[in-house]
Write a protein that binds this DNA or RNA. Structure first.
Lengths: 251, 251
DNA sequence: ATTGTTTCCGTATGACCTACGGAAATGGGG
DNA sequence: CCCCATTTCCGTAGGTCATACGGAAACAAT
């Protein structure tokens, strides 16, 4: 299915929820059995355990011991709930502004990666029209501040920001995809590749793919560590080179 | 919903389909009304027009003028159909090996971006456990060959490959997300941001976000071109810097 | 106790994927 | 020409999901 994203609901309502703008006290009427925070936390719990696909309104309601439709009193719909989940986990980053601008960018990348690791369903959330809540905004401010301290001109800061943010989220998403699939299908990444051994036996053509063959023979794929570690260090390398390039471009 | 990906079906069956391994001639029996190619093309047409979310088995069957269940004779299920769609559009890249290694990497990025532009639903397809078909494999070979020609050691080629591939797919996906949303919701990116004007009025805090405020006042966001163009040039910049870094790391 | 307000939630609708099993088409053997 | 094994087609049905609707239930003020 398509990636989850904000519905076309009322933006003002969604923003009020994101910033926990209390909708004005209600002195009369039945007491709420659940709160927005409880719903969001329950949804995160379910998604962490069973993936975003399993995070249905019915499943979240069950988790809380209420009827499905009760949720709609507090949250406009599923799309908005995902926005709330997203901004909530982004807040877990707790970014501390220490060290050089490079160290802070890497800190940002590490913390963001940690969020994806803890909440693999983040891979399925589009970050192009993100929920404009405190979790996202604080992160943007942190990353922009780091890049601005690098000495880049203001106009280049915004450009570099898009590139770095794209790299970080893309890398974190890629890295975590593997685990998410493992959780959803009960099949690990290694076993997935193992099951596709047939490919190398039946379809791989040495003449069609000379470079891959050469690299294989040169032992380039004989990494001692696991697939996940290899991907991880590749993205560390990539971010490093990206920052090298940005730094070098100023001189 | 969660990103689409391969189901747990028989890998050998899926690989045979990807490489169009004919399942042996069937001299007897009813003549097929549709072929695998027709199904894949119809599915791509539907997804291009209405998004991956609208690409239901029923919708594809309707497009072909056959019953829904007929598709299951030729294709194991929806997940495998998406694998076939993905590899098919990746084949459209037609990568031509000309120029320096850098030019070839940028060529790869451009062609891949073009695929995402033409088929925005690609954003919703996970590329971590990709369909091992000719479209994907030819691309990997091309990119690996370019990086190998750069003079990197074999072991670094594979590391750089993951980083560049991640960046390219991530960038292409980000860039296209906007259009896909516009198509799905009938709301353009600009109008989406416009509707969230409330955010700047009601929730943006100048003291909490000093860097953003400074950058705004410095005119860093006053780009003449559209949002899409800004994102596009940001990723060009990012890839350039990434390659600068890779190149510089060799010396 | 009545009334206004708010929350809770059972039911129903419509969309989706796909298992099942029978109907329909096809070509070869008698 | 008829029969029948083989293959494809597809109607039906069961399971899942989001969510619109409307009434029941809880609560505070009167």
């Amino acid at each position: 299915m398509a990636a989850e994203r904000s519905g076309g609901g009322d933006p003002a309502r969604t923003l009020a929820l994101l910033w926990r703008d209390p909708p004005e006290p209600k002195p009369v009427g039945r007491k709420p059995k659940v709160s927005v925070d409880q719903i969001v936390n329950a949804a995160i719990t379910v998604a962490d355990r069973e993936g975003l696909g399993a995070m249905s309104m019915a499943r979240v309601a069950q988790e809380l011991g209420v009827g499905t439709m009760s949720l709609y009193t507090h949250v406009p719909g599923k799309a908005e709930l995902i926005d709330l989940m997203t901004d909530t986990v982004l807040q877990e980053r707790e970014l501390t502004p220490e060290g050089t601008w490079r160290e802070r960018v890497k800190h940002y990348a590490d913390r963001t990666r940690a969020v994806y690791q803890a909440h693999p369903w983040m891979r399925d959330v589009s970050m192009v029209r993100p929920p404009l809540g405190p979790g996202l905004m604080d992160g943007q401010e942190f990353l922009l501040a780091a890049l601005a301290d690098s000495g880049l001109e203001p106009r280049h800061v915004t450009v570099a920001h898009v590139a770095v943010e794209g790299f970080v989220h893309g890398a974190a998403a890629s890295e975590v995809d593997d685990q998410q699939l493992a959780a959803a299908t009960g099949e690990s990444g290694d076993s997935w590749w193992g099951a596709r051994q047939v490919f190398w036996d039946d379809y791989f053509d040495v003449e069609r793919y000379p470079t891959m063959t050469t690299l294989w023979n040169a032992g380039a794929y004989e990494v001692g560590d696991s697939l996940a570690d290899h991907v991880h260090s590749s993205f560390d390398y990539g971010l490093d080179k990206l920052l090298d390039g940005i730094e070098g471009g100023m001189r």
